[in-house]
């Protein structure tokens, strides 16, 4: 694909701003949603693991 053909495609017939704004905002939103979901899951596991470890330490003393 030539540079001209690419920039022709990327310009979306004068509507490039709108098309890329819609797709860009969607990509960022979905990415944040998935990252947030994964982080919440891992945080829950980590928090509980820390609690369990702390309890074990208390018991052994």
């Amino acid at each position: 694909m030539s540079v001209e053909a690419f920039s022709e495609w990327a310009s979306m017939g004068r509507h490039g701003l709108y098309v890329w704004l819609a797709y860009g905002s969607s990509f960022v939103t979905l990415l944040l949603l998935v990252i947030g979901t994964r982080m919440a899951f891992r945080r829950a596991l980590r928090d509980i693991a820390a609690d369990v470890a702390a309890e074990q330490e208390n018991e052994s003393q």
């Binding site: 979306m12 017939g13 797709y23």
Partner: peptide
């Protein structure tokens, strides 16, 4: 009618 903005 809408051109490329339709792709949204």
């Amino acid at each position: 009618q809408q051109g490329d903005s339709f792709r949204i």
